[in-house]
């Protein structure tokens, strides 16, 4: 890849995904090139970032994300992540990443046992990641949530390690779903995979109520721009 190329974002389309077009629109508005990737493909096209969008992949039957992790494309997504490539899972995408073992923990039903669609405030706990570099540490972002299973859980040992490593990247200022550590977004050990329940793609325009989502999406694009500019090759 040549330097200063436009970042290329691949959005995976599972049967039952429903936020894929919103992701495409918001990433394009921020200057990225996007490509839709059908879940049945076995390899990824030439993309810098893989997005697993929100929705109900495979109907979320059995358990959220439980079937989607077996979609053919997921092997290629795992390889991409293993090679240090960036992966962003939003909502259902976060659930799929947990099921696939790319992120620790699991997402249980919300405390209160209701689906919640509402604005939430997220505090950026770690601004030194590929997904948050545009934020100030402690900055509060207004981004909506839209889920029934966003109550993140992980065992104590992993939890302690993740807190120490700064992997709890985004915390709710008012926990809406019972999530451990008030976690709204977490990364893997390598920091190249982020899963978050809130929908940054829905908050990239003042007319829709907030532009704070662009801090997240824009950070990833900055990261990709920097890496292509400095390393030249991927």
């Amino acid at each position: 890849m040549t330097s200063l190329a436009t970042p290329r974002v691949g959005v995976v389309l599972f049967p039952g995904s429903n936020c894929e077009q919103d992701c495409v629109r918001s990433f394009r508005a921020l200057g990225a090139e996007t490509e839709m990737i059908w879940h049945g493909e076995k390899s990824l096209p030439d993309v810098d970032l893989v997005v697993l969008p929100g929705g109900f992949a495979h109907g979320d039957y059995l358990r959220t994300g439980a079937l989607a992790r077996f979609s053919p494309i997921m092997t290629a997504v795992e390889e991409h992540a293993a090679g240090g490539g960036l992966v962003l899972g939003i909502c259902n995408g976060f659930q799929i990443l947990c099921e696939a073992g790319l992120l620790p923990g699991a997402l249980r039903k919300n405390v209160g046992l209701k689906f919640i669609c509402a604005w939430a405030e997220l505090r950026v706990e770690n601004a030194d990641t590929a997904f948050t570099r545009r934020a100030q540490p402690g900055q509060v972002l207004k981004v909506p949530i839209n889920h029934f299973e966003g109550n993140w859980y992980v065992d104590d040992e992993t939890r302690e390690r993740m807190v120490a490593n700064g992997q709890i990247v985004l915390r709710y200022t008012a926990n809406p779903n019972g999530s451990l550590e008030d976690a709204a977004g977490i990364t893997n050990d390598g920091g190249n995979v982020l899963g978050m329940m809130p929908h940054p793609e829905r908050a990239c325009e003042a007319l829709l109520g907030s532009e704070d989502g662009a801090v997240i999406l824009g950070s990833v694009l900055d990261t990709l721009g920097l890496s292509s500019a400095t390393s030249g090759v991927r």
């Binding site: 209701k114 689906f115 669609c117 929908h199």
Partner: peptide, 14 residues
């Protein structure tokens, strides 16, 4: 009731 409904998808709900 309506906080249980996705009312934002499609980025069109002004």
């Amino acid at each position: 009731a309506w906080s249980q409904y996705d009312h934002m998808i499609f980025l069109g709900t002004i």
